[in-house]
Amino acid sequence: MTPLLQVNNIEKNYGARLGCKDVSFDLYPGEVMGIVGESGSGKSTLLNCLAGHLEPDTGEVLFNTRIEGMRDTLKMSEPERRMLARTDWAFVHQNARDGLRMGISAGGNMGERLMAVGDRHYGQIRTQATEWLEKVEISEERIDDRPSAFSGGMQQRLQIARNLITGPRLVFMDEPTGGLDVSVQARLLDLIRSLVRELGLSAIIVTHDLAVVRLLADRLMVMKSGHVVESGLTDQVLDDPQDAYTQLLVSSVLQV
């Protein structure tokens, strides 16, 4: 089987400060990988390098495109990369406000992505948007409301709907459940999990919440000071951590 994403030796420095270094991994179709680590460990830097939001200093991010097979996304032209970002890729921001247009309606937020890939039939766009609202458990009658009138949890679900409506194959998520209260977090986890299974998505999820990765991720990568200190099956890394830092991290979790 060909990997969907192949990452080789990514390194990113902010001047003299290290962002992340020597990161390599393969992600296969249908796999969900979690990236954990304390704040400042380089996990968001890495995610942004992979998603094309930041340019790494060295390395390759190879993506298995539908038409041309493996392509280095870092060497793609800007229009190509933008096309990829709104078709096969999706990016769910920690703060829903960063991923939504707050000034246009919920339906418009979803329609925009569809129109970007060529949909022009207003009726069909609206039907699809309505279907997705239902999938993320937002009442249909809110379709013409602006996201600014939504609660934080609803905004986050709308952001997910907006991202997944075009049927991407790879989703990047930056702390998708951060800052939400636990009951909303549980719904969102359930939603993400069932969407991943139904649509056969691959996802890379950055979080500092170990309980979230245990439920969502098949594989886990632990980062510290810009380096990957340990990686493997999620439950194996959490239950039998090998690295000193991972052991500290796992043993620091509060029991509820």
């Binding site: 493997g232 099956l233 239950d239 039998d240």
Partner: peptide, 9 residues
């Protein structure tokens, strides 16, 4: 048992 399941290395 956990080693067999791959849960422990």
């Amino acid at each position: 048992m956990r080693m067999i399941y791959g849960n422990y290395l």
